[in-house]
């Protein structure tokens, strides 16, 4: 059965790229929400297997959205992965406190990200996935 991924992200281009990468890797269904409020609605309606979440969004930001999801018994089991431009220790700490499973630094390699999502699905949600945020310094020249 395909993995249902809810993408909560306000940039249409990034939405598109995420959708396409997941398609490329295969085995994913995607649902898109443009901000936190909409994200929670879609989550309740579509019961996704995993959520990819932007941080800076209109109406409700990523941290608050994540906290609400984690407080809602119907949603709290869904792993949430943050996609964030800020990966300083205290930013990551904040995401983790909000209940995130992991953080991925923007700009990310979309295909790698799709692979990571599959892996999380396979292994099941082990909770804290601090190993996820890799700095982009490994990028070869």
């Amino acid at each position: 059965m395909a993995t249902k991924v809810l993408i909560i992200e306000d940039e249409p281009e990034i939405q598109a790229i995420l959708e396409m990468s997941l398609q490329q890797v295969g085995g994913f269904d995607t649902v898109i929400a443009n901000d936190g409020i909409e994200g929670i609605e879609r989550a309740l309606r579509d019961s996704p297997d995993i959520i990819l979440m932007d941080v800076l969004m209109p109406r409700l930001d990523g941290y608050a959205t994540c906290r609400r999801i984690k407080e809602d018994q119907r949603l709290s089991k869904i792993p949430v992965i943050f996609l964030t431009a800020r990966t300083d220790p205290h930013d990551i700490e904040r995401a983790m406190r909000a209940g995130a499973t992991g953080c991925v630094a923007k700009p990310f390699d979309p295909l790698k990200l799709a692979g990571q999502i599959s892996k999380i699905r396979e292994e099941g949600d082990r909770g804290d996935r601090r190993d996820l945020p890799r700095r982009p310094h490994g990028t070869p020249k």
């Binding site: 281009e13 790229i17 990468s21 431009a85 923007k106 700009p107 979309p110 295909l111």
Partner: peptide, 14 residues
């Protein structure tokens, strides 16, 4: 800066 870079990197990768 990173928002456009994310789109750029993502689309080239794809």
């Amino acid at each position: 800066l990173k928002t456009p870079l994310t789109s750029l990197k993502g689309s080239i990768g794809l």
